[in-house]
């Protein structure tokens, strides 16, 4: 049976550290699939102008494409170069909730995230989200320093 590990990334150096650790774990475990997950922070309760609403579908597609092309796919490719199995997932929503629910949906054994990001805004993924994830996740979480 393949063991699945979720790796949370945010396109920054800390995400790289999480990937490195997950790769190490995967090599130790053996038959393993790494799921590289990028969450675009989004709330259904944010307030928007009519124009933003009209363009929302278009923007969403662009956001997913951007994240896939620049963050998730390159990470997946690098993991594959090491001879490991990997897959990328891009979702909209709350970071901690989605990493946890994706782990449950995919039947993953472990979630690996980094403690904090070097970049200001992008750090939202690994700021308080890490704490939330650790508190509420339904599967074990490894936080890389």
């Amino acid at each position: 049976m393949t063991t699945k590990i979720i790796v949370g990334v945010d396109g920054s150096g800390s995400g790289e550290r999480a990937i490195d650790h997950a790769k190490k774990m995967a090599k130790l475990i053996g038959k393993c699939e790494l799921l590289v997950v990028f969450v675009i922070e989004w709330s259904p309760y944010a307030f928007q102008t009519p124009e933003q609403n009209a363009e929302r579908h278009k923007r969403r597609e662009e956001e997913i494409k951007d994240a896939t092309d620049h963050i998730v796919q390159p990470a997946v490719d690098r993991i594959k170069q090491d001879g490991l199995t990997a897959r990328g997932i891009v979702r909209h929503g709350h970071v901690a909730d989605l990493l946890s629910s994706t782990a449950v949906d995919e039947g993953a054994e472990l979630i690996v995230v980094a403690r904090s990001s070097e970049h200001g805004l992008a750090s939202r993924v690994f700021g308080t989200s890490t704490a939330n994830l650790v508190m509420h996740a339904s599967v074990p979480v490894t936080v890389v320093g």
Partner: peptide, 9 residues
């Protein structure tokens, strides 16, 4: 998720 929600509309 990521599309316009009922709340937003």
């Amino acid at each position: 998720a990521g599309e316009v929600s009922h709340f937003q509309a």
